[in-house]
Write a protein that binds this DNA or RNA. Sequence first.
DNA 1: CTCCAGGGATGAT
DNA 2: ATCATCCATGGA
Length: 309
Amino acid sequence: MMSILGDRIFARRKSSSVHLTKIPAPDFDLAMTLDSGQVFHWEKSGHGFVGTIGEQAVYVEQGRNSLLSSCGKQLAGHYFALDHPLAEICASFPNDLTMNAARKFCRGLRIIRQPKWECLATFICSSMKQVAHIRQISKKLRERFGEPRNVGDWVIHTFPSAERIAASSENELRKCALGYRAKNLLATARLIARGDVDLEKMSILSDVDLRARLCELPGVGAKVANCVMLFAYERLRAFPIDVWIERVLREKYFPRERRLNAARLRAFTEKYFGEHGGYAQQYLFHHARMSKTKIERKSRGFVTPSGVR
DNA sequence: CTCCAGGGATGAT
DNA sequence: ATCATCCATGGA
């Protein structure tokens, strides 16, 4: 109760005490981008969000056709991919009812450029977890193992390095609500900390080779590999298929179609959604997720009270 | 309370 | 090569 009130006052003071630079950003929706399930650590604060870009703490806020940022234009512009030709990208999506609805709903959503280790580690923790849970895990990892940084009156934490995680223990990681994922995160962190795997050098690999190399890491399968390729390696063709996307594909693109395995779904998505398939996937994912939670909220008011039984 | 979640590794057909 | 099970956790 006290902390909630304190946070609000804090936020207002912070947003007025930090100097913001204005970056032209037509066709950009900050809130949609940060709430679309591609990045999990940004927190609402005042009229904007507080988070980290790499090692730096940053406050960002939506402006009129612009992005207001406490950090340099270069850093924020690159992170939020303001240079992506969004109109062209959206125009490359297939022209069908499902895709058109998602494209309209997600206007201004951009695939951002995340640090590779941070993105990989977060998605290793994402398996069989709801977005809200992933946010909690990310926060706990940062608060326990990351380094504090200041922005305005706020203190937030960087995402811990692979070396720091590697120096931890499975038991310690499990305190961050990781469950069985702790072992995988620790094993992958150790491979990277030891130098057996160099995420930066893997940038030169082709899509096929990069995916294969990522899948060699403990806790990384096709889905997580595609997320990391899309969100950290700027492979805009990578098409992660999770439970939400699979549901959309089956219901909208293969209604009443038995015998649909992972291989056939993958073959379809690769040829149908094209060179920016990852972008299309993110639009479909966010639209489906927002639509369902809205329906659930709406129907809840009409449901008979629980406890009747 | 039950249900389910941005899955992956493993072992059985 | 496909398919079934198990794995921890907590918000809805």
